[in-house]
Structure formats: C-alpha cells, structure tokens
Write a protein that binds this DNA or RNA. Structure first.
Length: 202
DNA sequence: TTGCCGATTACCT
DNA sequence: GGTAATCGGCAAC
C-alpha cells in the first residue's frame, strides 16, 4: 500500500465480540510474505463466535484442546485452524485471555497484490480470490503457522481505514455452515457490507 | 484402532 | 441440485 498504515491497537480487540465483528468491516487485512511482497484486502464479511455458551463455537462448554488453545489468548491474536482437512480458516481472537471468543473473517475485497493472489488461488476472476474463509487464506498464504500470531505486527496485521461503515450499511444474518448448533445457528451473528460484491454468499 | 464429521471449496449433472 | 477431496480430534469399539 502506498498510504501509511494505522494498525489497530490491542484494545480494539479487548471488547465485546459482536461489536468487534461489526467494526472490523471496512478495516484492512495486510499480509507480508517472506519475499516482502504485500497482499491486502478490505474486510467485507465477518462472523462472531461467542465462546462457552455458543453451540456453534469450537470452545462451547469451555472445550480446551490443542486446536482451540489460541482462542484462550488475549484479544488481538489470530486463531487459524484446518477445516475439512483441506482449508485454513482465519479468526481474530477477542476479549481478554480466558474468554475464548473470536471473529471469523469470511471475505475480503482484494486490494494489493492481486496478481500474486491469482497465482495462489489458481483463479483469474477477482471475485474468486477472497470470497470465502478458505479462499482468502489461500490467497494471502495464511496457514496454521500463523496461529496465535499477534495482529498488531508483521507479517499479518489489521489496519484502520478512512472508510466509515455506518450501521445501516451492515447486514446481519445467520452464520453459514453451523446447522448443527440448533437454536444458536439462527442467531444473527454474520455481518457484511450491504451490496458489496465480494462477500461469500447471498 | 476404527469410524465419523466438520465455521469449505470445486466440479459435476 | 449433489458430492469428492483429505486431515485431525474424539467417541465408540
């Protein structure tokens, strides 16, 4: 990016998960590769996962495993896990340590490094690069090696943006792919920017 | 040790 | 619309 970054402080993440999920919309996810190339995208879709009482959450009933350990860290860390044996999913941990909640980043609007993303994804259409949680991890080369990384520093960080997303531009819907969670699957914890063409699904 | 299944994606009919 | 791909955690055997 040509503009200066305004990295979100750790305090941004030490707040209610649903609020963080809403306020992450419009922010910029930046990835610096080992060769110093910069890949970035605007966050356009998120989901909140509300910890021990949320049946859709990996830490429901305070389940502590190797996989979920990062969710128990302080807000501002990453939680990256493998889904279906094939794809990584990237989350932002929220709240203070011991409160295992997180925000899943579901879609980005690609900004910098689009040609690199096309190679990583083996796709040419920009809409196919980051329009899903597994897709954006492929595009930005986010893997489990970055699990537990603090997002206030390279090589993976989130920056503020000049764009203001007003609350009437934010759509709230049920989360995707959590039908097993019963009543919790109906909660309106998926958020996206109204009309944005880069979200994962209608 | 076996079997099942998941916060997904791509490709098929 | 349907389903294969492919790994790891966990419950059941």
């Amino acid at each position: 990016m040509n503009v200066k970054y305004r990295i979100l402080s750790k305090n941004f993440y030490l707040r209610a998960t649903e609020l963080v999920a809403r306020e992450l919309l419009g922010k910029i996810l930046l990835r610096r590769l080992p060769n110093n190339k910069i890949l970035s995208g605007k966050i356009v879709e998120t989901e909140a996962y509300l910890g021990v009482h949320d049946r859709a959450c990996h830490t429901y009933q305070n389940k502590q495993t190797t996989k979920t350990a990062a969710m128990y860290l302080d807000g501002g860390c990453s939680y990256v896990y493998l889904i279906y044996g094939m794809y990584d999913c990237f989350n932002v941990v929220t709240e203070k340590s011991g409160v295992p909640e997180a925000v899943l980043i579901r879609a980005l609007e690609p900004l910098d490094g689009i040609e690199e993303m096309k190679r990583n994804r083996k796709k040419n259409m920009i809409k196919e690069l980051c329009s899903g949680p597994g897709k954006l991890c492929q595009a930005l080369k986010i893997t489990r090696e970055l699990n537990g990384h603090l997002l206030t520093q390279a090589p993976l960080l989130i920056s503020d943006s000049d764009e203001i997303i007003s609350s009437n531009e934010i759509v709230a819907r049920p989360r995707i792919g959590v039908d097993y969670a019963g009543e919790d699957s109906k909660r309106l914890l998926r958020f996206y920017i109204r009309g944005n063409p880069y979200i994962s699904k209608k």
